[in-house]
């Protein structure tokens, strides 16, 4: 028999979910409005503000930059994060305890501080290109997610399977791709998705690492909002929500939605 819950609590929870979903419905509605100003409920339905996104050069460019940064930094984070997670599970005794603390640091240090420090002590001090600094910042930001998710799936991996493959003559690299990687496949997908979406949405690091000609989509959105109050921002927001839905659908297909609750 399930526990009875007081109706007042159920009513309260219903209100909370209206509070959570309502504002996003409002953004969707305003994006479809045919007016030149932001309004809700929409007056006349139109998709012209979606066309306007691609008519504005700055949006086209920053969407491209955001995707590039997200793809590259996610790829690099997986490339260095998977071996690191593997090393920490497989060779735990060889490695010092502070290593796992080191990999949590990007979560502890405020993103704004990381962004500013990269600008000041990398981009300025060593004349590093802004794009490179942006990639470094985003890779560091998402590395803890990658390591945490991959380590969690390695925790249930039986390393004796790997030893069996090696003792039967399989070379180490081949063993990695044919034995280990298929076993942590769902972890890799989850890490990829979390990392990608975190990078695309990032403001606090990117805000310092945008220069002449280089900006990411969220930073461009902020800049646009300070000058204009038209539905373009709402339609870009809807595009980002569509991306979120796509991501959730991929997670659902590959891992099941229960994964999201963890």
């Amino acid at each position: 028999m399930p526990t009875k819950i007081h109706p007042a609590l159920i009513g309260f929870t219903a209100l909370v979910f209206i509070f959570l979903v309502g504002p996003l419905v409002i953004v969707l509605g305003s994006a479809l409005s045919d007016t030149t100003y932001l309004t809700f409920p929409p007056q006349g339905l139109s998709l012209r503000w979606f066309e306007n996104i691609f008519a504005i050069d700055a949006f086209r460019r920053t969407i491209l930059t955001s995707l590039q940064v997200a793809v590259i930094s996610t790829f690099v984070a997986l490339l260095i994060g998977i071996p690191a997670s593997y090393a920490m599970s497989r060779y735990r005794i060889q490695l010092p305890g502070w290593l796992s603390t080191l990999f949590v640091l990007p979560v502890l240090v405020p993103e704004l501080v990381l962004g500013f420090s990269l600008l000041k002590n990398l981009a300025f001090q060593f004349n590093a290109p802004i794009f490179l600094s942006l990639i470094i910042g985003h890779t560091i930001l998402i590395l803890p997610y990658v390591i945490r998710v991959i380590s969690a799936s390695l925790a249930s991996f039986d390393f004796s399977i790997e030893e069996a493959a090696i003792s039967l003559g399989s070379p180490p690299l081949k063993t990695f791709f044919t034995v280990l990687l298929p076993n942590v496949r769902s972890g890799v997908i989850a890490a990829f998705i979390l990392a990608f979406i975190t990078s695309v949405n990032d403001v606090s690091i990117s805000i310092f690492l945008t220069g002449p000609g280089i900006s990411t989509l969220p930073i461009q959105l902020l800049a646009h909002m300070e000058q204009f109050f038209d539905p373009t921002v709402a339609s870009v927001s809807v595009l980002l929500m569509v991306l979120t839905v796509a991501v959730m659908a991929i997670v659902e297909r590959t891992l099941g939605l229960t994964f999201l609750a963890k």
Partner: peptide, 14 residues
């Protein structure tokens, strides 16, 4: 989860 995965700019804009 949906609002959580939607960026901070979009959610503040709302």
């Amino acid at each position: 989860v949906f609002p959580l995965l939607t960026g901070v700019v979009v959610r503040s804009f709302a």
